[in-house]
C-alpha cells in the first residue's frame, strides 16, 4: 500500500488542507492581533532585555513558580512540555531541518536510541501527561474552574492528534527502506519519510495536526506565544522594582 491508497483523502489532506490551514491560521493570528492592537497602548516602561530573558527561562521554560507551589502539577506540566518539545524537534528531522548525523559523534547505538527508540517513549509520555492534565482539569471543574467547551476542545484535539501520531509510530509500517516524499506546500513544507508508515494512522494524524494548527489562534492555546511576551514584560518590570 502506498500513501495515496485513499486518493481523494490523500489529495485533500496533503494537497488542499495545508493551504486552508495556513490561511485559517494567519487569519486567526490577524484577528487576535487586531483585537489587541485596537486597544490603547497603556503606559510603557523601558524593557530590560536580560531581565526579560531570565524571566522567560525561569518561568516559561522551567516553570519555577509552579514548582514552588505544586510539585505534582509542575511534574506533569514540565514532562508534558518536555515531551512536546522533543516531539516537535523530532518532526523537524522529517522536514530536513536537521539530520540524524547530528548524533553520530555520540556513537551509533546512542544515535539509534535517540532517533528510533526515544521518540516512541516521548509519544507515550506526551499522551499520558495530556490525559493526566485533562483529568486534573476535570477534577477542578466547578470548584476552581468554569471552563468553556472550547477549553476542552483544544485538549481533546491535541490528544487525538498525539494518539494518531503514536499509532502511526507503533503499528508496522507499510514498507521499510523506502523513502517517500510528501509535499504539503511545494518547496516550502516537504516531509521526507524513511519508511512508509501505516497509511490510515498517517492520514488521520496529518488531518488532525492541521486542524490543531488552525485552532491555535482561536483558542486559549494562544498562550503558546502570548505567555512568552507577558513573561518578558513582567521580568522587565521586576527589575524596575529592584527585584
Amino acid at each position: 500500500m502506498t500513501l495515496n491508497a485513499y486518493p481523494a483523502l490523500y489529495i485533500f489532506s496533503v494537497g488542499v488542507l495545508p493551504y486552508i490551514t495556513v490561511i485559517v491560521f494567519i487569519v486567526g493570528v490577524i484577528v487576535r492581533s487586531m483585537k489587541w492592537l485596537s486597544a490603547p497602548r497603556g503606559s510603557s516602561t523601558p524593557l530590560s532585555l536580560t531581565a526579560a530573558i531570565r524571566q522567560i527561562i525561569l518561568d516559561v521554560i522551567l516553570f519555577r513558580k509552579i514548582y514552588r507551589h505544586d510539585k505534582l502539577t509542575w511534574l506533569l506540566i514540565f514532562l508534558f512540555h518536555i515531551s512536546a518539545g522533543g516531539i516537535i524537534f523530532g518532526h523537524m528531522r522529517g522536514f530536513k531541518l536537521w539530520s540524524a548525523e547530528l548524533f553520530t559523534p555520540l556513537g551509533e547505538g546512542f544515535k539509534n536510541f535517540l532517533v528510533e527508540t526515544l521518540p516512541i517513549y516521548m509519544g507515550y509520555l506526551f499522551i499520558a501527561t495530556q490525559l493526566l492534565l485533562l483529568l486534573r482539569r476535570l477534577s477542578l471543574e466547578g470548584r476552581k474552574l468554569l471552563s468553556h467547551p472550547n477549553d476542552y476542545a483544544a485538549l481533546i484535539l491535541l490528544l487525538a492528534t498525539s494518539i494518531a501520531g503514536q499509532g502511526m509510530r507503533i503499528t508496522p509500517p507499510e514498507a521499510v527502506d523506502t523513502t517517500y516524499t510528501v509535499s504539503f506546500i511545494p518547496r516550502l513544507v516537504v516531509l521526507h519519510l524513511e519508511k512508509i508508515p501505516s497509511v490510515p494512522w498517517f492520514l488521520i494524524h496529518v488531518i488532525l495536526t492541521q486542524l490543531f494548527f488552525m485552532y491555535i489562534p482561536y483558542s486559549k492555546l494562544i498562550h503558546i506565544y502570548t505567555g512568552v511576551i507577558t513573561a518578558a514584560l513582567y521580568g522587565s518590570r521586576r527589575s524596575e522594582y529592584g527585584l
Binding site: 497603556g42 486559549k220 502570548t226 507577558t230
Partner: peptide
Amino acid sequence: RRQLLELDT
C-alpha cells in the same frame, strides 16, 4: 493592549 493579551492568556 497588554491587558487584552493578558486576559486571553
